[in-house]
């Protein structure tokens, strides 16, 4: 059976908020490394991978591998009943029909209990190759969100160019064009505000802003975001959590 308790329900709430517009139904795979999910969006150009490691939970018990087939809209409805700082316990039998969620308020003796019906989801498991990227850029997640939102007002796609000096986001649309450059800067006092560029070689790729804006819903998970780019391979966008991550992969647009 599975029994996994999160100190803060907010963690799962944020994860579900971050991915629910990309993926409707998916398996939460529970095993001795924690809870993971991996799913492609309907159009098969983006992939989300999430891992909540066992340290994220206390206690964490999972006797055998269990796939919890969950409709994310349903899970979100139930999670709305949890306060952000409630203790959240997930429980399931070995061959479950339902996932049991218990929300316990830290401040009073309120205990709320919900069951979500599970579904059989026949999901393809994909191997994500270890990739040496041409450029890896770590920047404030709020800044990345702002840039994507601002440029999306002008255009459907953005060109991202990473060089030693900085990272440039630019777009062209019917009403005009726009560009935002972040220079490499190491903020010693506030490291989360730094823009750090690790460069093997300069790289420039174009992506759909619709997807990037969607991925930015994960911004509440982490103050920083890491973008990894290489020619002709999917962009990797990682939001690191204390004990896990949410990663998005997006295929570059062709013809540039």
């Amino acid at each position: 059976m599975l029994e996994a308790r999160l100190e803060q329900a907010a963690v799962l709430k944020k994860v579900v908020d971050a991915i629910k517009d990309l993926v409707q139904d998916c398996n939460f795979d529970c095993n001795d490394s924690g809870i993971q999910l991996q799913a492609m969006d309907n159009s098969h150009v983006a992939l989300v991978a999430m891992h909540l490691k066992t340290d994220a939970f206390s206690p964490y018990r999972c006797d055998r591998n269990i796939a919890l087939g969950i409709n994310l809209a349903s899970l979100q409805k139930v999670l709305r009943a949890a306060q952000n700082d409630d203790l959240l316990t997930l429980k399931a039998e070995d061959a479950p029909d339902v996932l049991n969620l218990v929300f316990e308020s830290a401040e009073n003796d309120r205990i709320a209990e919900y069951d979500i019906k599970l579904m059989d989801i026949d999901q393809e498991h994909l191997g994500i190759p270890d990739t040496e990227y041409a450029a890896t850029v770590t920047m404030p997640s709020s800044e990345f969100q702002r840039i994507c939102r601002d440029l999306n007002a002008l255009s459907e796609s953005v060109s991202i160019e990473a060089a030693k000096e900085g990272i440039k986001f630019s777009c062209q649309g019917d009403i005009g064009s726009g560009a935002v450059t972040l220079r490499q800067n190491n903020n010693v006092e506030k490291p989360d505000l730094s823009t750090i560029i690790e460069l093997n070689e300069p790289v420039g790729l174009t992506f759909s802003l619709k997807y990037l804006v969607n991925f930015c819903k994960a911004s509440s998970l982490s103050n920083t975001v890491k973008l990894s780019l290489s020619a002709e391979v999917p962009l990797l966008i990682e939001y690191k959590m204390e004990s896990g991550y949410v990663r998005f992969y997006l295929a570059p647009k062709i013809g540039d």
Partner: peptide
Amino acid sequence: TSTQARMQDFFKAI
């Protein structure tokens, strides 16, 4: 589309 095909190429089915 070819974009989908490239994603499939990158992420190998296990």
